[in-house]
Design a protein around this nucleic acid. Structure first.
Lengths: 111, 111
DNA sequence: TCGTATTTGCTCATTTTTGCAGAAGTATTA
DNA sequence: TAATACTTCTGCAAAAATGAGCAAATACGA
């Protein structure tokens, strides 16, 4: 990958949330997924600005979903990972894995 | 980020390099380790500024090594991980692991 | 049914922190 | 004085983080 094509930490989390949420990935569910899994508070604006950046870079795409018949159920902006996004994620994770390879860093790794 | 609670991607790499290099961790070797393992070019200034920040946050400590009898062998500033740094690293990695848990994201995981 | 409250969801502006790049400076040996 | 190994400084770009406010939908009482 060329320059400036690396993913930040939070961006990686967003992409991982996309994969997990599949067809139900939009701002609120992405935020919720990250909060629940990491147990850290996430401001909603942060999610959307990461999504913007990632879309600009071609790492995800968006489409507008229909409104749902529940109170407040307005139309959602749904996101999905692109092939380029998947590749970038794999690459970033690979680099980190290489850095950690062979080290005892996450507690006991293999019991 | 924000309040310096979380580690950025590059900061994690620096801490992992420290562990790997043990008693031989200083600017140049840290840079080299990251470059070799990730196959991405790393500017030396970036390494030192990350080291500065991490030291300020108490995630690593430094001491001055003695000069060595080789041409240009001036004194090195040696770094080592603190317990707080180890904890922060484990925590960051744990959050990412939680995000990825159960997903098929790194190709075939167990070949 | 009108108006307003409530809920879900999104946008925008701003600041702080990290990432990145290269030039400059320092200490040491040849 | 020159070469080498290493560190520091400076400036800008990108990412992370915060917070306020806008928009669209349903609920519900007057």
């Amino acid at each position: 990958m060329g320059k400036g094509e690396y993913l930040g930490e939070f961006e990686q989390m967003v992409l991982l949330a996309l994969i997990r949420l599949d067809d139900n990935a939009y701002g609120m569910t992405i935020r919720q997924t990250i909060q629940e899994r990491t147990r850290r508070p996430v401001a909603i604006g942060q999610v959307y600005s990461a999504l913007d950046r990632l879309e600009h870079k071609g790492f995800l795409s968006s489409r507008l979903g229909g409104p749902e018949p529940i109170r407040g159920g307005r139309a959602k902006k749904l996101f999905r990972l692109t092939p380029a996004g998947a590749a970038a994620l794999t690459h970033s994770r690979g680099m980190m894995a290489q850095m950690a390879e062979g080290l005892d860093v996450d507690g006991v790794e293999s019991v």
